[in-house]
Every structure is written in C-alpha cells, then in structure tokens.
C-alpha cells in the first residue's frame, strides 16, 4: 500500500522527520504513537501533501507510484485520505455540495462521469448512519457550527463517502468524549477491509481499545524507534515514553 523510506522533512527550515521508515501493507492498521513534538502530525501532513513541508530526502511509494511527486489533490484522487486533527469550516458551502464536488472530481480523475444524484443520496443516507451523524448536519455548511465531536464524526463520514484505500487519522480521538470515541471507532472498524489500510496517529492508547491495530510504532525525534503489536500501546500507557527516549539516545 504505502512504503516510506528514509523520509526527511522540515518546516520553516527546521527538520522534523529525520529518516523515517514505514511499510504498510494492504488491509493493515498501523498506529503511530509518540510524545508531543515527535513528528506525528508532520508525517500525516507530509503524506497528504501540505505545501509548507519540505521533503529533503527519502522516497514514498503509494501503490507503486511516487507519492511525493503528486499534487495534494492527486494524492486524494489516488485514494489517500486524511482525517484532520482540526477540520476547517467552510461557511456557505453545504456538506452535501462539498462531498458531491469531491466525489465527482475523483471520478473525473478516473475517467468516470458525475455520480447519479440518486446513487449519491442513497450513499449519503447509508454512510451517515455509520457514524450516527444527524441528517441535518450533512445539509449544513462544512463543519460550520459543529461541535468538536461532530467535526470528527464528519471526517469519518467523508472518509466513508470517498472510499479511500489509505486513510490517515490524525489524532482523531483528541477532544472526544467516550461515546463519540466509540462511534468514531465503530465507523472506522466497519470500513476496515482487506483492500483498505489505516495509519492512526494518536497520543493515547484509549482509541486502540476500540480500533485494534496490527502494529504499533513509536515515533520519537523524527524516527520510528520501536515497533510492536497492540500490547506495545499498553506498555506505553503504563510506562510513558521516557524509557524509550533514553533507549533511542543509546541507539
């Protein structure tokens, strides 16, 4: 699915990612954990193609294609989806109109005509129930006046609508109460299949109680310093990150 080799990236001249390696295969769920400032969100932004980030070195292959050479919109059209940590508001643009535009742009990229209105509406109905999103919200402007939880659920709803092959969740659990967390996790679990992979960036082990990852990686100082199974998350929860910091210095 995605293969990241020796990725170096900086923002405002400051290097954040310092030789990151990660290999995610079809259908796998990888959790990326790590202390503040370790580069977790940078990784998500670099993969999505945010222009402030400069890649100095490294290679990223996405389904065999050179991801770093693609524009942000083409990455999305190729099936990469980022669930934002802070979803932005777009006043006056209805969620429905926004999604329809996005779907049709992606379809056009694949040489398909616009989606049938009927099919689209049926899809909206089906997918919004997945994240228990109120029908009224989908008619409102994109994220405008949504609560924190509603914004995050809307991200998962969009993900369900756009049917990506690789979904990156950037701290989707931050700011969620336990009920919202369960709803979001349920949505993600229902979307898991053998063709779709996930990279879940999170601070806390809590989310991983609901979304069971295949691998857990610890990102520290711009590099992955430890990789393990789901039990690694529990270990981190109990011991914190400090023991890894000293380990990585030794290494």
């Amino acid at each position: 699915m995605i293969n990241i080799k020796n990725l170096h990236a900086s923002v405002d001249g400051q290097e954040i990612l310092k030789g990151l390696n990660l290999d995610v295969k079809d259908g796998e769920v990888h959790a990326i954990m790590g202390p503040n400032g370790s580069g977790k969100s940078t990784l998500a932004s670099v993969l999505a193609g945010k222009s402030e980030y400069e890649v100095a070195e490294g290679e990223v292959l996405f389904n065999g294609k050179n991801l770093l050479e693609m524009s942000a919109e083409d990455r999305a059209r190729e099936g990469l989806f980022l669930a934002f940590q802070y979803p932005v508001e777009i006043p006056g643009v209805s969620n429905i109109n926004f999604l329809k535009t996005a779907i049709n742009e992606i379809r056009a990229y694949k040489g398909l005509g616009p989606i049938e209105p009927k099919t689209f509406l049926a899809m909206v109905k089906e997918k919004q129930s997945l994240v228990e999103l109120d029908g009224k919200l989908t008619g409102r402007s994109v994220n405008e006046g949504f609560s924190g939880g509603e914004k995050k659920r809307n991200e998962i709803f969009q993900m369900a609508m756009l049917e990506p092959t690789l979904a990156i969740l950037d701290e989707t659990d931050s700011g969620l109460d336990i009920d919202a967390l369960r709803i979001v996790a349920n949505g993600v679990n229902k979307l898991r299949d053998q063709k779709r992979s996930f990279i879940i960036v999170t601070h806390y082990q809590r989310l991983l109680d609901y979304i069971i990852p295949d691998f857990v990686h610890v990102l520290y100082n711009g590099r992955i310093v430890k990789t393990g199974g789901k039990e690694l998350a529990l270990e981190l929860e109990a011991k914190g990150y400090d023991w890894l910091k000293s380990e990585s210095v030794e290494a």
């Binding site: 999505a48 942000a72 999305a76 934002f84 932005v88 535009t101 996005a102 969009q158 756009l162």
Partner: peptide, 15 residues
C-alpha cells in the same frame, strides 16, 4: 485560508 484550500485539495478538489 490556505487551510481551507488544503482541506479541499485533500478531498480531491483542485485549487
């Protein structure tokens, strides 16, 4: 916002 534009681009909508 650059952020708004990036959000759209990430959903497959060009600038």
């Amino acid at each position: 916002g650059e952020d708004q534009i990036f959000y759209c681009k990430q959903r497959g909508i060009d600038t």
